[in-house]
């Protein structure tokens, strides 16, 4: 929801980033305020995941220009773990498998680290078990996912649910969901969308990276941005996603200067 005078959670200005000397992000401007849901769409390879990973602090990318403020802090100065502890969360497009680390052990470590940062109580394994099982019910995840190694052998959809489970546990200020809807069946999509909707409120914000209007039927965005070749080339309201669904991306390239609907 767009709330008047709400505080800015994320502000990105002129962000440029490259990997191995190849520039991928070519000047990104984006402001996200509390309560808002932003969707980022765009062709394969336009830089959506790169933006997400740069914001999360992946060391393979070199930021060459621009500034990013997160809750008033200079985000680019912080190592990834401090970004996470400050309330930034990235649900990965391709969640990593970690053989040998039990999911429950991983989830509890992450939860307790973030709790400690917030000056809140850490949970012992038994307490955590009760707590995480409740959260798993919301996402209709079977408890045996706790004992398995992190994401190892999980199906594509199960990995995505495990990401949202982490989001539910960590209660981030800003969640970036990178194609969390890809690979989900219709039922799973509803469950995951429901989970996300329960977590979002007027004090936090969400960025959804997606290719499909389908997700946006369940999680309704306040803004839709279109990325192309490392830039945000168009920003609109939720109706822009519908238009992209019918018209594709070609017309945007032809009218690059055009700004539809609301201006960010």
């Amino acid at each position: 929801m767009i709330i008047e005078n709400s505080s800015t959670i994320l502000s990105v200005e002129g962000l440029r980033a490259s990997i191995n000397g190849t520039e991928i992000l070519k000047g990104i401007d984006l402001t996200v305020k509390s309560g808002e849901i932003h969707a980022i769409m765009g062709l394969n390879g336009s830089g959506k995941s790169t933006l997400a990973k740069v914001l999360a602090g992946h060391s393979a990318y070199e930021v060459t220009a621009g500034a990013v403020q997160f809750e008033g802090k200079n985000l680019l100065e912080l190592p990834p773990e401090e970004r996470a502890r400050a309330g930034l969360f990235l649900a990965f497009q391709y969640p990593i498998e970690i053989p040998g680390v039990a999911n429950t052990q991983f989830l509890r470590l992450a939860y307790n680290t973030v709790q400690a940062q917030r000056g809140k109580e850490e949970l012992d394994p038994l307490e955590f078990d009760d707590f995480v099982r409740e959260k798993m019910k919301l996402l209709e995840m079977r408890p045996d996912f706790l004992d398995r190694s992190v994401n190892e052998g999980f199906s594509g959809g199960e990995k995505k649910r495990n990401e949202i489970l982490q989001m539910a546990l960590l209660e981030p200020k800003l969640s970036i969901l990178d194609e969390t809807d890809s690979g989900l069946d219709i039922d799973a999509l509803k469950i995951v969308a429901n989970g996300v909707n329960r977590i979002t409120n007027k004090d936090n914000a969400t960025i959804l990276v997606t290719h499909y209007q389908r997700l946006l039927d369940y999680i309704v965005p306040d803004f839709v941005h279109v990325m192309q070749a490392g830039r945000i080339v168009m920003t609109g309201g939720k109706e822009l996603a519908l238009e992209l669904e019918t018209r594709g991306y070609d017309w945007i390239t032809a009218n690059k200067q055009q700004v539809a609907g609301v201006t960010a």
Partner: peptide, 28 residues
């Protein structure tokens, strides 16, 4: 490196991420 980044993106320090992964390797 991707495993380390994944763990750090969940709030684990680099040290504990590395420890956990090393432990996991030996745990088998």
């Amino acid at each position: 490196a991707e495993e380390i980044f994944y763990l750090r993106s969940r709030g684990l320090s680099e040290k504990s991420a590395r420890n956990l992964l090393t432990y996991a390797f030996g745990a088998e």
